[in-house]
């Protein structure tokens, strides 16, 4: 039989990819999961909603995003979990006493040794500490070093570098072609008048997408938080 590889409860990878689109977590303890990102599991695993009260201590340490509480659960027990997200590419990342900000819709799961906070940039979450997390992207992630300007839609996240700032192409907006567009409607916008600009040392993560991964807005509703 030349069919695909068959996995079972023992041969599933330990905290590694099964293929480009599926990731296997070897659970022995706790992990945070975004709802709906697990497609199958083996073993004895309990799932508790974040904010249901049983896990106060854990949440006090690791989860600081009240706006996202409804989207996350804690998986607790022993077993193997298969994570996936709409057939997007899935990868794990290890943080070693580091910090990484990521688009909220792209984050699938993380170890409780990491601490999750809301980024200052709306729509992004920041993970701080040491541990592993799993994230999805539309196509493989491309890693770039600053200085670089990025279409906000293409940004998956960034690590270590200073928080990005906005960059507007004023030459275009105020220029001759902009004027023609304003008067005639011909020509349209280039679609590239606004970017996030990254400077300093660090890594920027990119994907090819235009709003393909749904995101949950954070930081825009203001008062709901702590």
């Amino acid at each position: 039989m030349n069919g695909p590889v068959v996995h079972d409860a023992w041969t599933l990878p330990v905290d590694d990819n099964i293929n480009s689109y599926a990731f296997s977590v070897d659970l022995n303890g706790q992990w945070f999961l975004q709802r709906g990102k697990m497609v199958a599991y083996y073993g004895q695993i309990d799932f508790q909603g974040v904010g249901l009260g049983h896990l106060d201590h854990l949440i006090a340490h690791s989860f600081h995003s009240p706006l996202h509480a409804a989207e996350w659960v804690v998986a607790e027990g022993r077993g193997k979990m298969v994570l996936a997200d709409r057939a997007f590419d899935v990868n794990s990342y290890d943080l070693d006493d580091g910090n990484l900000s990521i688009r909220s819709g792209n984050l699938l799961a993380f170890q409780p040794s990491l601490s999750l906070k809301q980024s200052i940039v709306p729509g992004f979450l920041t993970l701080i500490g040491t541990g592993k997390f799993v994230a999805a992207s539309n196509g493989p992630v491309v890693f770039m070093e600053p200085p670089i300007r990025v279409d906000p839609q293409a940004l998956v996240g960034w690590a270590d570098c200073p928080t990005p700032c906005h960059h507007y192409d004023h030459a275009y907006l105020r220029g001759f072609l902009g004027g023609i567009r304003a008067h005639t409607g011909i020509g349209g916008a280039s679609g590239e008048e606004h970017q996030f600009e990254f400077v300093g040392a660090g890594t920027v993560l990119l994907q090819s997408t235009e709003e393909v991964v749904a995101e949950i807005s954070v930081g825009e509703t203001g008062g709901t938080g702590s």
Binding site: P4, A9, I18, N19, Y21, A22, M38, Y41, A84, R86
Partner: peptide, 18 residues
């Protein structure tokens, strides 16, 4: 949607699937 994962079920290891 995405390469399928093939998972073996044995009497000792039942499987839960979405």
């Amino acid at each position: 949607l995405g390469t399928a994962v093939v998972l073996r079920v044995t009497p000792q290891t039942p499987l839960q699937v979405d």
